[in-house]
């Protein structure tokens, strides 16, 4: 038997999956039409191709004049700020590869943690191997296996 707790684990897994599905298929509702473009104040009507922010979902929708509907983009306000800030020539980031910009500039502190974790892992490996097999020079009968 795979240990006694597998029934509880299976139960948790099922409950978690159902919760995830329910959370996933929740209904976002109609876009609220809040203006995103800097030059668009609230009561101005939305022209074609203008970015409009839907504050329930935080998604950005583009107004499509031909079908007179809000086309939901899969970008949020946060994505836009990251992308445009990192490629903005007079900004401080100036990196074409936004992923690296985020890894090393916006979240540089986390990458510092990651680098230290790698450092610790290497020292751990070297200590473990050295303890298991001390060098032959110092100790005559260094055990083989």
């Amino acid at each position: 038997m795979i240990g006694k707790g597998w029934k509880l684990a299976a139960l948790f897994l099922v409950v978690f999956m159902m919760g995830f599905v329910v959370w996933e298929i929740r209904d976002f509702g109609e876009p609220s039409g809040k203006a995103v473009d800097a030059n668009l104040d609230d009561n101005q009507d939305v022209e074609n191709g203008m970015l409009v922010w839907d504050d329930e979902t935080g998604q950005i929708d583009i107004y499509d004049e031909t079908t007179d509907t809000m086309v939901q983009q899969d970008r949020t306000m946060m994505d836009d700020t990251f992308i445009s800030d990192s490629v903005d020539p007079n900004g401080t980031v100036n990196a074409n590869n936004v992923v690296t910009a985020i890894v090393f500039d916006y979240r540089g502190f986390d990458t510092l943690g990651e680098a230290t974790v790698l450092f610790a892992a290497v020292s751990g490996v070297m200590v473990a191997i050295r303890v298991a097999f001390p060098k032959k020079k110092e100790e005559e009968g260094g055990e083989k296996e």
Binding site: D80, N96, D105
Partner: peptide, 18 residues
């Protein structure tokens, strides 16, 4: 729109501490 999309040609020595 109001988002600057990166162009592919960029100088090598371009992004400071990154």
């Amino acid at each position: 729109g109001d988002v600057a999309f990166p162009s592919n040609s960029a100088p090598l020595l371009s992004s400071g501490t990154i």
